[in-house]
Write a protein that binds this DNA or RNA. Structure first.
Lengths: 336, 336
DNA sequence: TAGAGAGGGTTATCCGGTTCAGGAGAGGAC
DNA sequence: GTCCTCTCCTGAACCGGATAACCCTCTCTA
């Protein structure tokens, strides 16, 4: 009934605990014959190393942490995090690392969670997402001295390693495409203004439009309701935009619905672009032109860096591929 | 630099390790004055109990596991799991339990993950979701003797505790509602047929329609594409249904788009109901009538049961509230 | 004033591994 | 025959807490 320990194996094999430890860890100090015998016994009785006992010897916890600070109702809707997590885990699983997850409601709580996990030796490192400007979490994590990979722009990640992608490039590609289609009045329905990547996109958007197109930016909380409200306001203005770029797909879908409800035909009267592609973008009519990126790969890269960091390597900022535009039915030439 | 231990506190306070242990755990054996002094020192130097050391004493790992066996692209789209997870964590966090998460690609892998975690004393218990008929995982987990709460129908959960909701009731309410609106040809676009809850809903649907309405059931993999394809086929048949019930919201949205693309007006020519409400259901035009349930609460209940199970209590199956119908613009009277 | 009992601490041991400092025995060189 | 080296293995200590058992010092009671 009790879980077998190396002591059990040792007594069965007629050797000491130490020999068993060496044998099972592939260390020198035992003959091949003895090693084989020990391994066979371990297999037979289904031995697994007790992670706590290992961790107690200053070894790693073989676990990394991720705390997400977003309300449940937004987390559920945004495919981003689930895809990111599954990408992260693909890498972790290969190295038998586990992922400790917690959903929190404030940055302060988030810092606390990390402090606890680290203090209790539960994790060897962590990811930090949704970077803000002058983010208190960065300082806090630097103070802890814990290996951390920031998934976000390196300009704000302090001394922490960062994995990021150039959103500016994607914005420029999008604006260029819309301009080529003849659009001169562009709008951007953006996410939370305090997030670094929102500002990065905002600035790139404003810059790309500079002198060649009128532009307006509206900030929201990523929910469909706010996306709908923003769209309604934009489409009600006398010089309404002929193209809108949304910061996520749920808002883009909401915007599409608002357009239809206002008898604004897409893409004839209005072009729509969604940031982050997803099945959702493809099932609506017309299917949404989207900024596609491989989010699981993004997560995988971050996980690789974190593991490298944990094993003592130094990890320079890593720039992942920028999102690319996938044109579909929701964008078309501007009406003359 | 090194993490403080109770030995550090002990030497500072001029007492033994044991006194510190008693003091910090609120056990009798130390005077209030000493306790206060020790707690103050612990606070000051930022002591946290080493979880590994605690776990080594036969104590709990203070951690439970959840392995999800669905492809990333489906996990991302389905708000269900994220909401479930955040509900689970609300309860866990209160008792400083952590959640170990892993996304796997097969049931076999899933069983393995649980075996490893349990064998390594990483977790004290686990959740089992997406129950199949004659599910091998149930037998496997029973064999492990690990506390497990199945989130699914108790008829298939063997000796494991179950938390479930009566999908049959929700189906009957929906069919009743559609019939009252005058619908006589109903369709159900269902999820994976091997899942227990799919069959439960299928049977309840067939039974509720028995003798009072024609009905057809199509199975899919929950993706928008298959939802769209199923809808297209249904709407192309000569005696096409006047109402369709979808097993998730992404398929319902896809179905709505297909209807619009085929010039089938919703709700005039076709009523649509989505299982599981979400912001998505509310942002499309018309907003979708949905079967609403409090998924975070569902997860919270499961977590409460799991913690009870871990602390040795016996936990009878718990039936959560059934989903309730939230009528919106996508359902209306059948045309004469 | 001895004895009982309670309060407040301590020492020793354990949990399941890892690691370090040897030690026994075989084999080789001189 | 002696000394040295190398292989293979062992005892003991340790990681950071929890816990059982015991001990000392008061205080209260008979």
């Amino acid at each position: 009934m009790k879980r077998p320990t190396i002591a059990d194996i040792a007594s069965r094999a007629g050797v000491s605990k130490v020999a068993v430890s060496y044998a099972l860890n592939g260390q020198p100090g035992v003959s091949e014959a003895t090693r084989a015998r020990i391994v066979a016994i371990a297999d037979e009785i289904g031995w697994r190393p007790n992670s706590a006992a290992r961790a107690l010897n200053g070894a790693r916890a073989n676990c990394v942490g991720l705390a997400l600070c977003r309300p449940a109702r937004i987390l559920g809707v945004e495919p981003f995090f689930m895809e990111l997590i599954s990408g992260i885990e693909g890498v972790l699983a290969d190295r038998s690392y586990a992922l400790l997850l917690q959903v929190v409601t404030s940055h302060q709580q988030e810092s606390e969670v990390y402090r606890h996990w680290w203090g209790e030796s539960r994790i060897d490192g962590a990811f930090l997402v949704d970077l803000h400007y002058a983010d208190a979490r960065v300082a806090e994590l630097e103070r802890l001295g814990m290996p951390v990979v920031v998934i976000g722009h390196p300009s704000e990640s302090g001394s922490l390693s960062a994995v990021w992608s150039d959103d500016g490039e994607a914005v420029r590609e999008t604006v260029g495409y819309l301009r080529a289609l003849g659009h001169h009045r562009l709008a951007r329905v953006a996410g939370l203004p305090e997030l670094v990547h929102t500002t990065v996109r905002d600035q790139a958007f404003a810059q790309a439009c500079e002198g060649v197109a009128e532009h307006v930016i509206v900030h929201t909380d990523y929910t469909g309701e706010e996306g709908a409200r923003a769209t309604r306001r934009l489409l009600s203005s006398p010089d309404r935009p002929t193209a809108i770029v949304y910061d996520n797909d749920i808002m883009a879908v909401a915007g599409l619905s608002v357009a239809q409800e206002m008898r604004v035909e897409v893409p004839r009267d209005l072009s729509i672009v969604a940031w982050d592609d997803s099945p959702l973008a493809q099932v609506v009519r017309p299917p949404l032109t989207a900024l596609t990126r491989d989010i699981p790969a993004y997560g995988a890269h971050a996980a690789q860096r974190l593991l490298a960091l944990i094993s003592g390597e130094s990890v320079p900022p890593y720039q992942d591929q920028a999102a690319v535009l996938t044109p579909r039915g929701s964008t078309g030439p501007a009406r003359a």
